[in-house]
């Protein structure tokens, strides 16, 4: 390594600020942790969109245009410090894996620190309830007390109690989108926050026509429902005649009886057939 001196703090304040503006968010956070004087210098409040993923390796995703920096935590010390980059369609995800005895606590701590240092806006939350059985309420409570609202939430998991999932829906403030990919033991309807624009339910065996009629979002997608073609026909007519769903712009649903759909589901409804598309 080049041992020549480089006393960064001796540079002109204007230069220091210019360099700090150039640092990527993770390097900027690490700089601020180098000493108390570095923390005092770290006053640049660049706005970043942040996502939080509560999975087996909890992570904070910080986006800056085409590059997203992903900090993940693991309890496997053998892979501590792993880094890799994924690229797709001009975008890249730079990932770093850090060992922690308690990955969830480390992730929360990192998020709170980043939030105090920079202008972060929570964009997306993903929670895999399978990885946090018995701890989901605690996560929801933490999110509720530390994040005002998120643009989008995705929840996934298998065979969870309905009330656990409903607790998340009741307590997290969402602006735009909710995607539920959770099977519940009770298979009972969920109360969906009215603030959202888009709802996606993957395991919708509990979705009834009354439930569909009660929703007010712009965009619904339901899969795994048992809705009959006759019921869909009632819904379509109500929508077309503007008796309900006046804000609805997009509707997608699985068909339980494809053969009869045109004859029954679209009875009395003008339609055009588009090209077939793959399932979910």
């Amino acid at each position: 390594m080049d041992q020549a001196p480089f006393r960064f703090v001796d540079l002109d304040y204007v230069v220091i600020r210019e360099v700090l503006k150039t640092l990527d968010p993770i390097d900027y956070i690490n700089f601020s942790k180098a000493s108390k004087s570095c923390k005092r210098l770290s006053t640049i409040k660049t706005r970043y969109k942040v996502s939080l993923t509560f999975t087996d390796r909890p992570a904070v995703w910080i986006g800056t245009g085409p590059v997203t920096y992903v900090m993940k935590w693991t309890d496997n010390s053998l892979i501590d410090g792993s880094r890799w980059t994924e690229t797709c369609q001009g975008k890249s995800w730079k990932r770093r894996l850090t060992y922690s005895e308690n990955p969830l606590s480390s992730m929360k701590e990192f998020y709170l620190y980043a939030r105090s240092l920079m202008g972060v806006e929570l964009d997306f939350v993903l929670m895999n309830m399978d990885d946090y059985r018995g701890e989901c309420r605690e996560i929801v409570d933490w999110l509720r007390s530390n994040c005002l609202e998120s643009s989008a939430l995705s929840v996934l998991g298998e065979r969870h109690r309905r009330e656990e999932l409903q607790y998340a829906l009741d307590n997290l403030k969402l602006k735009d989108s909710l995607k539920i990919r959770v099977t519940t033991i009770e298979q009972l309807p969920l109360v969906i926050p009215e603030s959202i624009e888009e709802l996606h339910i993957t395991y919708g065996s509990w979705v009834t026509i009354e439930y569909v009629m009660s929703l007010k979002m712009r965009n619904f997608t339901f899969h795994g429902t048992k809705l009959a073609n006759q019921e869909l026909n009632v819904f379509y007519k109500s929508w077309i005649e503007m008796k309900s769903h006046q804000s609805l712009e997009y509707f997608e649903v699985n068909l339980t009886d494809e053969e009869d759909f045109v004859a029954v589901g679209l009875r009395g409804i003008p339609y055009e057939m588009g090209p077939p598309r793959p399932g979910p």
Binding site: P5, F6, R7, F8, V9, L23, D24, I26, D27, N30, F31, K33, A34, S35, S37, C38, R83, R96
Partner: peptide, 16 residues
């Protein structure tokens, strides 16, 4: 200091 830890940054930039 790209990808460096706080300790490494302190060393590279000679931060007291």
């Amino acid at each position: 200091v790209k990808g460096k830890s706080p300790e490494e940054i302190r060393e590279i930039w000679m931060i007291p």
